[in-house]
Design a binder for these strands. Structure first.
Lengths: 332, 332
DNA sequence: CTGTTAGCGCCTTCAC
DNA sequence: GTGAAGGCGCTAACAG
């Protein structure tokens, strides 16, 4: 049946007023069960569906969420997106996908366009915006949940416990007898990278290891970055027997660098990654890594956002999810 | 500046009528340059932004697209999504992400919800809907582009030339001296799988190869599926010296199966994949594969959709993109 | 060139 | 229980 059916049509057909139809649709009380039944029957028969925009204009709520990520083609964010979409859908919300393409200006523009569309709230992931602009976003949007980026108290957050991840990885290597453990640190500006480093340093310190700052090597968060970083680090500090890597891509790069330097993994060098993307289990040797619950990060963010939208501010203002060590061949 | 500013406010502040402001905003002609300038200045000063929903109600166009995929966390679709989003954004459109989760019923529901939101058009990828429902979607949505699924003439399509992919892979293996080439065919119900098979059979036939239908083995489109399929196939037909695989994940599974059977790749068995996902270059041995231009699939779909929405139906009713052979170690 | 008059389709408030 | 106004913020069709 056609799309042009409006509420008046249904009302006329059912022999009631427009308002009664509206009440039925919105599950209001104070409608005679018989009338309700008759209206529902007509709605069904005509295939009537209320217009979201008209309703949005009248109620100022659109049953619509925004999801902003730096790069949707990154497996990290696409898994997260699945979590957000799933919970939103269950709650009757549609989600706008905003891809910032790793560009703060574009991120800002996307956020503005979401305002124009009157989303009820936004899940903002790994924002590349500076503090000032980030705060501005928070003040202009009706509701925001920050994922993977901390701002200040009073804002809803969903975070991974990166520090715990750093501890897990480092502790595992220590327990296997490694003392001289390098860290391929990823981007210098990354919040997560600094937290993981903190966990790493803390664990080494509490084990009484004679730590050398030269063991830490920043690198791009890619296979190439890992390759170059590992090559440099292993040549500068040949005493290292293990590497903790910012993420799995970097770890794969480290694997390649080790092979070129004739160092056999795991015998001559242990390698631990982060994230546990699909790839991690499939490279040779398979990667030991810290699994990040990506889907849960997204679903939690959506849950927090819906809770806030629906006015239960007491519910979870800050959710911290824990990583989990997955032991495979690169550091058995 | 606040969000509560409406057009009347701007009009009052600029000393003109509401209509003049509307004209300025919509870049209509017939506005005195000075007036226009004054209005623009006020708009800027007040930080006014027109309401998308109000405008949507009035014009019946929402500057909004729907994107429906079976699984956004699949790298295939997330790359495609990036292409769609990018072109949509450039054209001033926002895109709703609909994740069907490989479930036809959910796909249908998502499509309905997009109707309610009055999207101007939909990019529908690898639809799992039957022909009847698919047609129904087309008739109810103002504009639809089908990706990776053929329906009938008169509908906009963006497709990969799967048959050419099958030919490319098979021809490459033939040129390397392989005659007995198996096909790990993926899901029996997959449209792409059947097209790739057609290219494979055609190439074998025209090379005069004495083909055996037992060389074809269906399997799930995953690493496990590839593993099991390859194990079965190689045991049933030990004469095979090469495998063409439905996709890269299947190919990785084949690699694992070969290793377990003590067959060394590429010496004892050549393997060719499909898609060229990130993984393909990183496994050992690196996969020879047919690269699918995922981003372009998405951006083309968005372009076709915008063309149709903007009423240039003569523009590209069917776009067919070509795969490209990438030669690596698994079949040098 | 600019302003006035009607809606777009629905919901809110208030009567009945 | 139900219905009749009025308005959400904007644009289309006419006037001037």
């Amino acid at each position: 049946l056609a799309r042009n059916i409006r509420m008046v049509e249904v009302a006329r057909e059912a022999g009631v007023s427009l308002m009664t139809v509206s009440r039925v649709i919105n599950h209001k009380q104070d409608v005679n069960p018989e009338t309700r039944q008759r209206v529902l029957e007509v709605i069904h028969r005509l295939g009537y569906r209320p217009s979201g925009i008209a309703r949005g204009l009248a109620t100022r709520r659109t049953a619509t969420l925004g999801l902003v990520v730096p790069d949707i083609s990154n497996p990290f964010f696409s898994s997260l997106a699945r979590g957000v979409e799933h919970i939103a859908y269950e709650g009757g919300y549609n989600v706008f996908l905003g891809n910032a393409e790793e560009d703060p200006q574009r991120e800002w523009d996307v956020l503005l366009s979401l305002e124009d569309k009157h989303v009820d709230g936004v899940v903002l992931c790994s924002s590349r915006l500076d503090q000032a602009r980030l705060k501005s976003v928070l003040s202009r949007q009706p509701a925001v949940v920050l994922v993977n980026r901390r701002l200040e108290a009073g804002v809803d957050h969903v975070l991974l416990d990166d520090e715990a991840g750093g501890r897990l990885a480092t502790r595992h290597l220590l327990s296997r007898g490694h003392i001289q453990i390098g860290f391929l640190a990823g981007p210098a500006a990354s919040y997560s990278a600094r937290r993981r480093e903190a966990g790493y340093r803390e664990t080494l310190a509490s084990a009484g290891v004679d730590f050398d700052p030269g063991w830490i090597q920043p690198c791009a968060p890619t296979v190439e970055g890992g390759q170059q970083g590992a090559a440099r680090l292993l040549q500068a500090r040949p005493e290292l027997t293990a590497l903790f890597c910012y993420n799995d891509l970097v770890a794969v790069g480290a694997l390649q660098a080790a092979a070129r330097l004739g160092r056999c993994v795991p015998q001559d060098l242990a390698v631990v990654g982060f994230d546990d993307i699909l790839l991690a289990a499939l490279v040779t040797p398979a990667l030991t890594t810290c699994r990040v619950p990506l889907y849960e990060l997204g679903s939690q963010a959506a849950r927090s956002l819906l809770a806030r939208i629906r006015g239960r501010p007491e519910a979870c203002r800050e959710v911290v999810l824990q990583p989990e060590l997955v032991i495979r061949q690169s550091a058995p």
